[in-house]
Design a binder for these strands. Structure first.
Lengths: 159, 159
DNA sequence: TGTAGAAATCTGTTGTAGCAACTATCCGCA
DNA sequence: TGCGGATAGTTGCTACAACAGATTTCTACA
C-alpha cells in the first residue's frame, strides 16, 4: 500500500485549501453584490480587454469554461444588462460580449471590498519579498499549466 | 472609475489561474480512475484520518462542502463500495464515513499518476528553496482563511 | 458558381451543489 | 422524569455547468 502522507500530496493539499479558503472569503463579497464568482471573473476580464469586449470563444479559453457555459453566463449577464452581445463585422459566426456601463458600475461597486479581501487574506499576510517570490512561483506554474490563458488579449493577469 | 489593473487583482488572478490549471491536469487522472475531484479528496482525507474514518460533519468542515453535499458524495461512494457508513456508539445522531479496502485500493491505483502529475506541473517546476518558500507562504494563507480545516483530526495537510 | 469540410455558437439532457425544511437525537435545567 | 433548545444528518427544490448534437456561417477548391 502506498503511503498517503507523501509530501507532494501535502503540497497539493495546501494549495487547494489556501485557494478554496480564499475563494470562500471573496465569494461573500460577490454574493452581496449579486454576482457569482464566474460573473465577476467574466466582467473583470471584459473590463481589462481591449475595447472592453472579447469574443465568446476567447472568453471560454480564458475562463476554462466550456463554450456552452460561456453562452449561459453571457445570457445571464445580458439579462441583467451588465453585458451586451455585439456581432463581429468580419466574421458573422462570431459574436462579442462587451461590458456595459452598468457592468463597469457593478464592478466599481464590488472592487473596493474585493481588493480589501485580497489584501486581508492574501497579499497583506506576506512580506514584500515573500509576496514577490510567491507570485514568481505562481507565474512559473501558471505558464506551464495554462499556455492559452491569454487568448484574445495580452491584458489578462500576466502582470 | 476604479482601475481594473490593480496589482492585487493580478495576484489573485495568478493564483486562480495556476490552481485551476493544475486542477484541470489532475482531473484527467481522476476521471480515468472513475473518480471525481471531490471523490478523491474525500477518499484521501478518510485514508489519512485516524481509524480511516471521519464523521460526516467533520468531513464537511474539511472539504468546505455543505453537509448535504457530503451526504450525497458519501451516497455515491457507498454505492460503489468505496466507503461505508458506520453508526457512532456514543451519539446516535452522528455517523461515520469509513473508507473500505476497495476504497484504499482505488486510491492506490490513482496515486502513482497523481503524484507524477503534481511533480510535473507543480513541485518539479520549482527549485527546492523556491518550493519551501512557496509552501510556507501557502501555509500562512491557509491558516488565515481556513482555521477549521483540521476538524476531526490533526492529520490533514498541515505538513 | 457550387459543394465539402471546418469553425463557432446555441439547445436538450444529465449530474452536482447549495439552501431551507424536516426528523431524530443529545444536553441543560427544573 | 420531562421539557426546550441545540446539533447531526437527510431530503425537496432550485440553479448552475458539462457534454453531445444541431444549426449557422466561413473557407477551400474545382
Amino acid at each position: 500500500m502506498i503511503s498517503f502522507d507523501d509530501s507532494r500530496l501535502t503540497a497539493m493539499g495546501l494549495l487547494a485549501e489556501a485557494f478554496s479558503g480564499l475563494s470562500a472569503k471573496t465569494h461573500l463579497s460577490f454574493a452581496e453584490a449579486g454576482l457569482s464568482d464566474i460573473d465577476f471573473e467574466t466582467l473583470i476580464r471584459l473590463a481589462r480587454s481591449p475595447g472592453r469586449r472579447l469574443r465568446m470563444s476567447d472568453l471560454a479559453a480564458q475562463t476554462n469554461l466550456s463554450t456552452s457555459g460561456v453562452t449561459r453566463v453571457v445570457d445571464r449577464l445580458e439579462r441583467e444588462g451588465l453585458v451586451v452581445r455585439q456581432s463581429c463585422s468580419t466574421d458573422r459566426r462570431a459574436s462579442y460580449a462587451a461590458i456595459t456601463e452598468a457592468g463597469t458600475d457593478r464592478l466599481d461597486a464590488v472592487l473596493p471590498r474585493h481588493l480589501a479581501d485580497i489584501e486581508t487574506w492574501f497579499t497583506g499576510l506576506l512580506s514584500p519579498e515573500q509576496l514577490s517570490a510567491f507570485l514568481e512561483a505562481l507565474r512559473v506554474i501558471r505558464d506551464a499549466v495554462r499556455p492559452c490563458a491569454t487568448a484574445g488579449a495580452e491584458l489578462t493577469s500576466t502582470g
